[in-house]
């Protein structure tokens, strides 16, 4: 990697080299014989993708369903492994994909903060430090020692979001810019998301073109597992819309 660490701006946060990802299509196999002897059907979700995201860069990703956007995010955040190619990332990655995935219904809000924080890469000491801030932001003081199954959907999201933004990641992976809770909380979130986006390296998938223009200067257009266009967001979205109007 780059030896002169002083030049922060040009440091690479995410480097993907010749990434391909193969999935096996699972069909219903009616007989045992077929299960073992029928040829496996393959599906390439990503084909030879190379991509670099510099530190502090905000990259938006657009593309139709099934283009490989989510697979790419999963590979960057380490949830799955590419079939070929290498992934190099620098720093803590937080994926704001599903905020409530790490919660356990039988534990209290407090206990869930601990577990979710650890899953997001925080240390126990860090969680302790930020504990109060997390609860404050979520606004769930009264319910924080209640078991999680008593929470409403909105409350779960609020807590999930609050933990995620306090995890202080270096790289943020976002699948559809978040909207959690009621309008008041949403406004609070959007404000905080914008602040976060300004400081972090961001890779964000969205179908909301207006929001992408606002948040990400650069944009990537994915089509059938390949990069179709990588340019300024304005240009990419224009080309993208034109492509589908034809």
């Amino acid at each position: 990697m780059n030896s002169n660490k002083k030049s922060n701006k040009s440091e690479i946060a995410v480097r993907l080299t010749n990434i391909s990802k193969k999935y096996i299509l699972h069909h219903q196999k009616p007989t045992l014989v077929e299960t073992f002897f029928k040829k496996k059907e393959e599906f390439w979700a990503l084909k030879d993708i190379s991509l670099q995201v510099k530190k502090g860069e905000r990259l938006g990703i657009i593309g139709p369903n099934g283009a490989g956007k989510s697979t790419l995010l999963k590979i960057i955040s380490g949830i799955t492994t590419p079939t070929t190619g290498t992934v190099k990332t620098k720093g803590r990655i937080a994926s704001l994909i599903e905020l409530t995935a790490g919660f356990h219904p039988d534990l209290t809000g407090e206990e869930n903060i601990s577990i979710n924080g650890l899953l997001l890469g925080m240390s126990q000491a860090e969680i302790k430090d930020k504990f109060k801030a997390i609860i404050d932001f979520s606004g769930l003081h009264r319910f924080i020692d209640a078991p999680f199954y008593t929470y409403s959907g909105g409350m779960m999201l609020r807590l999930g979001f609050s933990i995620a933004i306090h995890a202080d990641p270096d790289i943020l992976i976002v699948d559809e810019v978040l909207s959690a809770g009621d309008r008041l909380f949403q406004e609070k979130c959007q404000k905080r998301v914008k602040e976060l986006f300004a400081e972090k390296t961001v890779v964000s998938v969205s179908h909301n073109e207006k929001l992408l223009k606002e948040l990400c200067p650069k944009c990537l257009w994915f089509h059938k597992g390949k990069i179709k266009l990588l340019d300024k967001t304005e240009k990419v979205i224009k080309a993208y819309i034109r492509f589908f109007e034809r």
Binding site: S77, G78, I79, I93, S95, I97, E98, A101, G102, L118, L119, L120
Partner: peptide
């Protein structure tokens, strides 16, 4: 599965 699909640990 939901945890494994959403989080890398």
């Amino acid at each position: 599965r939901s945890l494994i699909q959403k989080s890398s640990f």
